[in-house]
Write a protein that binds this DNA or RNA. Structure first.
Lengths: 197, 197
DNA sequence: CTACTGAGTCAACGCTCGTAGAATGACCGG
DNA sequence: CCGGTCATTCTACGAGCGTTGACTCAGTAG
């Protein structure tokens, strides 16, 4: 398991694989799954397309390898202060979102594999979050929170929506705080909503 | 401008174009721009692929025609009750989102044209909304609201995220109300945010 | 009745894609 | 120094794509 000799065969292989993986991640992120071609990835990595196939088996497998590198956001907070944890996590993702995560997001609407990855990641995140919310609609609340974070992250990094892309992360977080707090921390405090019908 | 004879040439043409447009919208919506093929659209519409080209010029043009049919959500509310208008609009979109709109959303991450459409629509919506918010960060607030709505709509209709897909629209709206109100209606009421730095 | 227009089909093109497999040549254990 | 292993390249195949242009045939105008 120790590092092999630098310049050795095994080392060289690892370096090349990493270069391919990097190039693939970048392309998947930039243009999505369908518009990414093995040839382009190979060329960007400075190797032949056949080598990519040789190492990763197929385009789908290569994609899998790339999105497997994405971290699943954790959130183990206790009731009453889950909101601040959520917002802190968002602040980080707004400042500099990891490429792998954004790659998944970009491809989630066209690639079933990516959609599954998003759902799986969201499920874990939601389940984790839900148990910090002591209401019977905790699951829904967590799902809504997740959807909100998705929308904001997407708008800022992928859609590059005007105002959002340029804004200070902390400012966005501050604007979202009341809503997230209402969703995560003050589940029963709903006295002011008027009744209709 | 009157309807031509039923069964006439012009009428027949209009019907065929509509059938193609419908099939295209459905396919773009279901699988996105890249995975939609002209052949499949033509086949679904019961015509030859060449005819699609003859009528619409190119795949990109066909796509343009489809997304041009999407309605741009309007929102002309006065300050102090913009939130309820926003939420009412969302409720409608949660209950049954128009296919054309979802088509754009599905393709926005892979197709520049769709991304532009989303940005353009969002810009109008945001600008419209912003003038109902009497703060200097009105644009950012409106953009955040738009992002939230995007995330929720996306999660429910396109990602079909577990809890969100099955939930009652009104319940989702109720959960989002505090946050939207805080963003749109109570711009100055921010007394409880702690100061940092 | 005739000439024309236009809806719709058909076959094929050129291209790009993912993928396969043989070939090459440097490295490394014995 | 020899034999094999393995990283890497090259060439090519087959499929599917968007797109083209020639064609057929029914409706329509004069």
């Amino acid at each position: 398991m120790a590092d092999p000799q630098p310049g050795s065969r095994a080392e060289q292989r690892r370096r090349t694989e990493d270069r391919i993986l990097d190039a693939a991640a970048q392309s998947f992120f930039a243009v999505g799954y369908e518009r990414t071609t093995i040839r382009a990835v190979a060329s960007a990595a400075g190797v032949d397309a056949g080598l990519v196939m040789h190492y990763f088996g197929s385009k789908q497998d290569l994609f899998r390898r790339v999105i497997d590198a994405a971290p699943v956001p954790e959130s183990a907070a206790e009731p009453g202060q889950a909101a601040e944890e959520i917002l802190a996590g968002l602040a980080g993702r707004l400042a500099a979102a990891p490429v792998a995560s954004l790659t998944i997001l970009r491809s989630m609407l066209t690639n079933p594999e990516a959609a599954d990855a998003v759902r799986a990641g969201a499920s874990r995140y939601i389940a984790n979050l839900a148990q910090a919310i002591p209401t019977e609609d905790a699951d829904l609340r967590a799902a809504v929170i997740n959807a909100v974070l998705l929308g904001v992250t997407l708008s800022r990094h992928l859609l590059r929506s005007d105002a959002l892309a340029d804004a200070d992360p902390q400012q966005i977080v501050d604007l979202l705080r009341p809503g997230i707090v209402a969703l995560a921390d003050l589940p029963k405090a709903n006295p002011s909503t008027e009744r209709k019908s």
